[in-house]
Simulated assay, not measured.
Amino acid sequence: MPKMKTHKGTKKRFRLTARGKIKHRAAGTSHLATRRSKKRRRNLRGTRVLETTMSHQIVAALGAYSL
């Protein structure tokens, strides 16, 4: 059987923590931020933990990186 390939787009956007949670960048941070309030921009900094509903699909797409 051939090996399962890692989905490269998923690999670039998500990262696993040591406990198996999935971190990702918050949406709405790349451009057009001047229309958002200072408080909202400040809270969009850093990373977020993904909800568990999508986590099994992300882990499957990461393949070898999900070990």
Rank of each mutant, 00 (worst) to 15 (best):
M1G: 13
P2R: 11
K3P: 07
K3H: 11
K3D: 10
M4R: 15
M4Q: 15
K5L: 12
K5S: 15
T6I: 15
T6H: 08
H7F: 05
H7E: 06
H7Q: 10
K8Q: 13
K8I: 09
G9D: 05
G9T: 09
K11N: 06
K12P: 00
K12E: 06
R13H: 10
R13Y: 03
F14P: 02
F14H: 02
F14Q: 00
F14K: 01
L16G: 02
L16P: 00
L16M: 07
T17E: 02
T17N: 05
A18V: 04
G20Y: 01
K21H: 10
I22L: 06
K23M: 06
K23S: 01
K23G: 00
H24N: 03
H24F: 07
R25L: 09
A26E: 12
A26G: 10
G28N: 09
G28V: 10
G28K: 06
T29Q: 05
S30C: 06
S30W: 11
S30Q: 11
H31Y: 13
H31D: 01
T34N: 11
R35M: 13
R36D: 14
R36T: 04
S37L: 08
S37E: 07
S37F: 08
K38C: 02
K38F: 06
K38S: 04
K39I: 13
R41I: 07
R41L: 04
R42S: 09
R42Q: 13
N43W: 14
N43E: 14
N43V: 04
L44A: 13
L44V: 03
L44H: 08
R45E: 14
R45Y: 06
R45L: 14
R48N: 06
L50D: 00
L50W: 02
E51D: 13
T52K: 14
T53Y: 12
M54D: 11
M54K: 10
S55F: 00
S55C: 08
S55K: 01
S55I: 01
S55N: 05
H56V: 04
Q57E: 11
Q57F: 12
I58R: 01
V59S: 02
V59T: 08
L62T: 00
L62H: 06
L62E: 00
L62P: 04
Y65N: 06
S66Q: 04
L67Q: 12
